[in-house]
Amino acid sequence: MEGLDFIKACSAIGAGIAMIAGVGPGIGQGFAAGKGAEAVGRQPEAQSDIVRTMLLGAAVAETTGIYGLIVALILLFANPFLG
């Protein structure tokens, strides 16, 4: 096996492991959505305020998932170890 193939193989593994970072925002945004739904159920006329707060917090929680995506995309498309 070539050294370059070994690097490519391990980059593929690294890219997959990096996406384990997707677990966090999934759990967190789900909790936020549930709490948001509960709050709207308790006071439906505040719905737009509640939804705006929930989306704001969810987009901030998205960030570390995006970091994992960036590392995975770097390993797949802009790999500094190949050539």
């Binding site: 995006i66 970091y67 960036i70």
Partner: peptide, 16 residues
């Protein structure tokens, strides 16, 4: 750092 990478990552991921 988080401001720039959040915007960059979301847009790059969407584009890809």
């Amino acid at each position: 750092v988080s401001l720039s990478f959040r915007l960059f990552g979301n847009l790059l991921g969407g584009g890809i």
